[in-house]
Simulated scan of single mutants.
Amino acid sequence: MKRSRLQLLITALLFGATTPAFAQTPGSETSIGRQAQATPATRTVFVKMDDISFGQKSIDVKPGETVRFVLKNEGALMHEFNIGKAESQLKHQREMAALFKDGTLTPTGKAKSIVWREHFTAPSDSDPPGYPEVIEAKHDDPNAILVEPGTTKEFVWTFADASNLNFACTLPGHYQAGMVGTFVMR
């Protein structure tokens, strides 16, 4: 009984971690833009992440432009590159804090946990009570990507004709420490 409650809790956390504002499928259009595929004509912007700052405070973009962000985390902590408006990023911060509180995320990465699955056949005396399965936390918001310490990741985004867009790290305390920048629409 305890195992099935734990499995239900883990499933609810993994699937309930996004809000409707972020629950878009990759490639689907939102008011701020959408994830995209890079092409040879895609402009590349390099973004350095450190503890606790971005290498730049603003990035110029054009409505309809597709930008390939190369995100290099040179810090000791995990960071997020989240594209959005300030009000949605503040809401996302609460969700990220809950994921830290329950242990789904750690300061340096996604947590892994072991869940025991039960056998669906009649067990014999020699059968173990089940089998272990390693579950890794998921973070699949289409407008954001997590970058672990010492890694480099790419994120491609096509910008809509939206104003007041930011890029921010919404991990607990990072935004408040100034890990936020603005997109300037030109």
Results as ranks from 00 to 15, higher is better:
M1E: 13
K2S: 15
L6K: 14
T11M: 09
L13A: 09
L14T: 10
L14N: 13
G16T: 04
A17Q: 13
A17K: 06
T18H: 08
P20E: 11
A23D: 15
Q24S: 14
S28W: 05
E29W: 10
T30F: 10
S31D: 14
I32D: 01
I32E: 02
A36I: 10
T39W: 09
A41W: 04
R43Y: 08
T44M: 13
M49N: 07
D50Q: 14
I52L: 12
I52M: 10
G55V: 08
D60F: 09
E65L: 06
F69P: 01
L71D: 03
K72Q: 15
N73T: 07
E74M: 09
G75H: 06
G75E: 07
A76S: 14
L77G: 00
M78H: 01
K85I: 03
Q89R: 07
Q89S: 02
Q89N: 11
H92Y: 09
Q93V: 00
E95K: 06
E95S: 08
M96F: 02
M96R: 01
F100R: 02
F100H: 11
T104N: 01
G109W: 02
S113W: 00
I114S: 08
I114Q: 11
V115K: 09
E118M: 10
H119N: 14
H119I: 10
A122K: 15
S124I: 03
D125G: 12
S126P: 00
D127T: 15
P129H: 11
G130L: 09
Y131S: 10
P132V: 06
V134R: 04
E136W: 00
D141N: 12
D141H: 09
D141W: 06
P149A: 02
K153H: 10
W157A: 02
F159S: 05
A160H: 03
D161F: 06
S163E: 14
T170F: 00
L171V: 01
P172M: 04
P172L: 04
G173A: 09
Y175I: 01
Q176T: 13
M179Q: 05
V180R: 11
G181T: 06
G181L: 05
T182F: 02
F183C: 01
F183N: 01
